[in-house]
């Protein structure tokens, strides 16, 4: 397969894809929840990226690579963890109902308690988030993408990025509060 590709494609792949391998692996690990599975997903994504390197428009390599990784991860999840891919529309309808029912944020933990959360507890809480919320939170708060880039990677409007991020963070905040005995009144 490689021999069909020109050296230009290889050089392009090296400059466009390889610098973002750590980001690619991190996203795949957060989506699959497993290191070995993440390696498989990244390898598959890189092959797709190599085949499609001519289609890269030359603007944002990291967002382009992460888009492909996310797609490969979703394919993997569909095959191996189909239960985790709930319909996003249903999810957001439920969330909306809950929030309009008036879950006021007055009852949730203080910033000092949140600041003391340890890595294990945070990882567990993030892993429990539904995939669309989890990927939005990870892309922003772990990987440092801005809203426009997240919108590009996850293929949703910026307003949806904003509401998913807000809900993901709210769930984490509530979860951290609930972990601590006496954290909730």
């Amino acid at each position: 397969m490689a021999s069909l590709k020109s050296e230009d494609d290889q050089a392009r792949f090296a400059s466009v894809v390889l610098p973002h391998l750590a980001d690619a692996y991190a996203l795949a690990r957060w989506l699959t929840g497993d290191r070995a599975d993440a390696e498989d997903v990244v390898q598959e994504a890189c092959l797709r990226a190599f085949r499609g390197i001519g289609g890269f428009a030359g603007v944002n390599a990291r967002a382009w690579v992460l888009t492909i990784v996310r797609h490969a991860a979703y394919t993997w999840l569909g095959k191996n963890r189909s239960a985790s891919l709930v319909m996003v529309d249903d999810l957001e309808a439920v969330e909306q109902k809950q929030s309009s029912a008036g879950a006021a944020f007055e009852q949730t933990p203080e910033a000092e308690l949140i600041a003391k959360a340890d890595a294990r507890r945070l990882e567990a809480a993030i892993a429990e988030l539904p995939v669309p919320f989890r990927e939005t939170l990870v892309l922003r708060d772990v990987q440092g993408l801005d809203y426009r880039e997240i919108s590009e990677v996850t293929k949703v409007p910026i307003g949806t990025v904003m509401s998913r991020l807000a809900r993901a963070r709210r769930r984490l905040i509530e979860r951290i509060g609930a972990d601590k005995p006496g954290g909730a009144p």
């Binding site: 490689a2 390696e39 990244v42 092959l47 959360a117």
Partner: peptide
């Protein structure tokens, strides 16, 4: 709370590099 959460995530969940064997396998594959 939101700022505390952002801060504690950045502090507690550092980004790790890709496993070295992965880069090697991908380079070989292409």
């Amino acid at each position: 709370r939101v700022e505390a959460l952002r801060h504690v995530i950045a502090e507690q969940l550092p980004r790790e590099g890709a496993p070295p064997g992965l880069a090697r396998r991908i380079e070989a594959a292409v």
